[in-house]
Amino acid sequence: MSQADLTLQGHSAGMMTDRPFAIPTKKLAMWLFIIADTMTFAACLVAYGFLRNATPDWPRPFHSIINVAVMTFILLTSSLTMLLGVQAAKAGDKAGAFRWTITTALAGVVFTVLHIREWLGLIGEGMTMFKNPWGTGLFGSAFFSVTGLHITHVIAGVIALTIVGLRYKGGRYNADDIEIVGLYWHFVDLVWMFVVPFVYLLNLAH
């Protein structure tokens, strides 16, 4: 083997083992996904804000905050149960980590059911993607797009939590995997913190 080959091998070995920011590559990949997804949600919310600001007859169809308050409470609490799952996994408590991860997934299911129930209520009142009885038809498309994108993330999170939880219990995944799926779940929770005030609370009928 020539000196050049040895040098090249040395470089590529270094490139393969050095981890950017000294964090596990799977975790870095999840962070990069979260940053990219932040841009997607931000673009949706900015577009929504643009339309709302530029449309004079923007509807305010929400009469009660109870449903959205309950949904917010469930999602915020699910972030706490996710943290407890990560803590348990890091402490080597396999049964506890599995229990908390599945509890988080169940909270996601309850959130999804409440969300779909709310959608069906609005559809029952005559709201579609293109028209509604209260004002501009843009409201339906903006509302269903933003909340639909979020609920898609919640459903994906529930599936991911269930799969990772089961595989962790079966010994195929470790505590790092629970932490990584937890990062995703916290991100879904974080997005809701912006969806609630802009899509629901600013459209309350006073």
Binding site: I65, A69, F73, L76, S79, L80, M193, V196, P197, L201
Partner: peptide
């Protein structure tokens, strides 16, 4: 968690 819950409650109060 309680801080975040309180901040979420504040958003509802602002509404």
């Amino acid at each position: 968690y309680l801080c975040i819950l309180a901040l979420a409650g504040l958003q509802f109060a602002i509404a």
